[in-house]
Design a protein around this nucleic acid. Structure first.
Lengths: 157, 157
DNA sequence: GTTGAAAAGAGCATACA
DNA sequence: TGTATGCTCTTTTCAAC
């Protein structure tokens, strides 16, 4: 897939707002193409791995996982990618960011039910070979789905 | 809403895998209830803001936004929540995490098309009143949708 | 709180421009 | 590639358990 055009961007824009509820017809109206075209485009975006999946945005705190933590770690650059594979398997880890710059080059986001989870997760991460720079609790996460796709084409409202 | 039961957790589990494609019938089979019940439960989860929405997982790099950055900042605790409102409006910002502990208490995740975006975003964030501790580029983000809901009830496969 | 049935609507696959 | 049609499945709504 070469590059996104306005139709693709408009579709992404609408999907960002409600990936489960948005219908192809709705999106077609927004960007000015037929529902079939919308489905074709979405299929292409998925095949090109531009859209990797669709996930619910869950308020972990309300769901009973009151502890959200952020671990800032250092990993040898040579082993970093390999380590990430293992980190992703740690129970409670929801995201890992590999940094291109900086010495604190791995950011781990995790959730847990109790303070035991903090100990367990830091222990496992250390055992995997990372040096933990800091462990901090998250008060709140604000997600702002990237709504800058196709703003000219698919206006909100 | 009091607390999640196995049915809720099983539904969340399946939604995590494919929030757009998963049908009520499918989820009902997985957790052993009727499709109607699945829809009722999902409605409750949404009303309780446990499920805040559904978003596509987009590979920003492949989508043409090659620069992903993480800004670690300090904000006066008293003003922090107010500042976050404004940060979320900055073009390119996709997530903000308010930290409960630590002096670096605001983590900002943003994307941009070129290096100009880095300057612009750091500038805007500074202007809003935050002290930037570090700006680092993200090489890759690994999202691991929290699949620990209802593992006993709704097995994968 | 859960289920089931009828009506409306959406999605998929095929064929065509 | 983008678009239109027919068939199937899903969702919705409402009444009943």
């Amino acid at each position: 897939m070469r590059e996104l055009d306005d139709v693709d961007r408009g579709i992404l824009h609408v999907l960002q707002a409600d990936a489960r509820g948005a219908t192809a017809a709705e999106m077609g109206d927004r960007v000015g193409v037929s529902p079939s075209t919308v489905r074709n485009r979405i299929g292409r975006l998925e095949e090109a791995d531009i859209v990797r999946g669709y996930h619910p945005d869950i308020d972990y705190e309300r769901a009973g996982y009151q502890l959200q933590m952020m671990l800032l770690c250092r990993a040898p650059v040579s082993e970093r990618s390999a380590l990430v594979e293992n980190i992703m398997r740690v129970h409670g880890v929801v995201a890992v960011r590999e940094m291109l710059t900086g010495t604190v080059n791995v950011h781990i986001e995790a959730v847990g039910e109790s303070s035991d989870a903090v100990d367990r997760i830091t222990g496992e991460v250390t055992r995997l070979g990372l040096e933990i720079e800091s462990v901090d609790l998250v008060k709140r996460v604000h997600v702002r789905p990237f709504n800058h796709f196709g703003e000219l084409r698919a206006e909100d409202g």
